[in-house]
């Protein structure tokens, strides 16, 4: 069931106003639905408190880029409702995609730079290391490595 209402359509100003209880859909879904109409309408979002502190509602003002009539305003309203549901449905099923974007971009850049290994790792000098060699001091007991001898603290 549609949750929003076509409040009014004013042919003179070529403007339809929709309203929606602010508690039903997250603002992000309203944004997504509004965005879907900006190729056909000039969109203005507003919010107003209901009387006696009973929550608030979103107002979505759609001024047609071409001449609208009542049927066209109704169609825009219907499309807004479809988009609202679609956005909210996806939002509900999906968690945020931001991490994925960052991962994709990071991999894109890292893959392209060719700098996947630290330079030290590429040096040939250590090729003939015996497994008993310990150039990084991994086998050194930490007490010895961090002893307070006043000369060495790391």
């Amino acid at each position: 069931m549609a949750q929003h209402t076509l409040e009014r359509f004013d042919a003179d100003s070529n403007t339809a106003v929709l309203s929606l209880d602010a508690g039903i859909y997250p603002l992000d879904a309203v944004y997504g639905a509004a965005y879907a109409l900006i190729d056909r309408a000039y969109v203005l979002l507003d919010k107003e408190a209901r009387a006696e502190g009973k929550g608030s509602r979103f107002l979505i003002q759609l001024r047609g880029k071409i001449k609208l009539d009542q049927a066209a305003a109704q169609a825009l309203s219907g499309e807004f409702g479809n988009e609202l549901l679609s956005q909210a449905l996806r939002r509900k099923v999906v968690k945020q995609n931001g991490g994925l974007i960052e991962e994709i971009v990071t991999q894109a850049i890292a893959g392209a730079t060719g700098a996947s290994l630290p330079q030290d790792f590429l040096d040939d000098d250590d090729d003939d290391l015996d497994f008993l060699d310990d150039p990084l001091g991994i086998a050194v007991p930490w007490e010895e490595k961090f002893k307070k001898d006043g000369k060495k603290n790391a």
């Binding site: 679609s86 909210a88 449905l89 996806r90 099923v93």
Partner: peptide, 23 residues
Amino acid sequence: PRLDELISLRKVDATFALPFNQR
């Protein structure tokens, strides 16, 4: 059918489907 008449957000089971889009 209008999507907002076909699907009620309250009845959606978000755990069932992999994220998808529709058209």
